[in-house]
Nucleic acid binder design. Structure first.
Lengths: 147, 147
DNA sequence: AATGAAAACCACTACGG
DNA sequence: CCGTAGTGGTTTTCATT
């Protein structure tokens, strides 16, 4: 993970569809050299994939929320499986502290939100906060890179 | 946003670097037709970009946390600007409820986490939970698409 | 591990349906 | 709005350094 790889990572975070030729111009290497480096970043697991970023409000999901959940039975794998099955949940993290799970979800309407909350609440005590705005869209810090 | 667009979106969420030719084979359209549709999804704001997905633990950031923050002075734009300047914060949402802000962050070590918490705590009352595992990696539900 | 060259592939444009 | 065809750029492989 030298300086070239760092620049490539930064560029692919900013534009995941950048061509190898484009990337090659940024780092002053040949396209084959860049392709090989990116392939290595992928096979070593640093880059796990590429994803289009979608404006949720433009696909009928204008309401976002954060849900904290304290599971009724702690360490219950089935509960996580149940949560995974709910498509409205965008992210889901098991955490330390008195909440067991943090989630972010998106729904199309308040009735849908109500259904979602009911579904989640079956698994334990939940607390839902509506997202008003996001100050930071999902990003990755590359300042202090190691390895 | 017809059935073709839905498939294209789904494919670009799964593989943001898929070529137009590849996408064309999935939807049984010609490559130029696909390129035009994708360009339209981009210009209409449905697709806001493409991003490489990175394994944070592989770039020296093995510890993730969720931070709830109750701002000392509510409705303080400067506080959000301050948070934006902290590179370790990956996502940041202003929400309703008694926490004002929800964040997810990644750090390289416990001392770094301590520094981060101190920085955030200057802005109000904060509560930090360490992420143990993630049941759902950032995804987008495309089941019930509208518009 | 990078370069340069060649073949295969892909993207873009224009035109026609 | 889609398909076909032509052109130019890009990816990929391979031999070379």
């Amino acid at each position: 993970m030298d300086k070239y790889d760092q620049i490539l990572l930064r560029e692919l975070l900013a534009n995941g569809r950048a061509s190898f030729a484009e990337l090659a111009r940024k780092v002053n290497l040949s396209a084959p050299a860049v392709a090989e480096r990116v392939a290595k970043l992928e096979s070593s697991g640093v880059i796990t994939g590429y994803q289009a970023q979608v404006d949720l409000s433009k696909i009928g999901l204008p309401i976002q929320c954060v849900i904290e959940l304290r599971l009724a039975q702690h360490g219950n794998q089935k509960a996580y499986d149940d949560l995974t099955q709910i498509p409205q949940i965008l992210e889901c993290y098991r955490v330390t502290g008195d909440s067991c799970v943090f989630m972010r979800a998106a729904v199309g309407s308040m009735p849908e939100l109500e259904v979602l909350i009911d579904k989640v609440a079956r698994l334990g005590f939940s607390k839902t906060s509506i997202v008003l705005s996001s100050a930071i869209e999902p990003r990755v810090p590359l300042e202090q890179l190691s390895r």
